[in-house]
Nucleic acid binder design. Structure first.
Length: 112
DNA sequence: CGAGTGACCGCAA
DNA sequence: ATTGCGGCCACTC
């Protein structure tokens, strides 16, 4: 396991968000799931709000590929950042998940 | 320490 | 399509 199981969810989330490569995006639910709590998607959002503002939260989107609601500046700002990284954002502020969804090759969940 | 809030997810009507 | 509800964990007041 690459993630420190002893640390709090917040720490893992921050590590994952910080590990999102350039031009890629992750979902709140996916991050939460990788942290061990697939239902704790809101916690991820919460961390984004009062967590490290240095992390690339603009690369974090919801399950629908849409942008966050409380993002500073609105979805426009987030969309601008993503486009700036080469991510195509639709008029509905949605990113192509099948293209930009970053899936860390870990947990050996492929099959046992 | 208790209560409230939060940038979400999924289902049901 | 929208609205409502429960759930999860952490942080702030």
């Amino acid at each position: 396991m690459s993630l420190p199981k002893s640390d709090s969810l917040r720490t893992k989330v921050e590590l994952l968000v910080a590990d999102i490569p350039f031009g890629k995006v992750m979902t709140y639910g996916q991050i939460a799931a990788l942290c061990g709590s697939p239902r704790a998607a809101r916690i991820v959002g919460g961390i984004a709000h009062y967590g490290d503002s240095e992390l690339p939260w603009h690369r974090v989107v919801n399950k629908h590929g849409g942008l966050a609601r409380g993002f500073p500046g609105g979805p426009k700002a987030q969309a601008r950042h993503l486009r700036s990284e080469g991510v195509k954002v639709g008029d509905d502020y949605r990113v192509d998940m099948s293209e930009y969804w970053y899936r860390p090759a870990m947990n050996g969940g492929s099959h046992d």
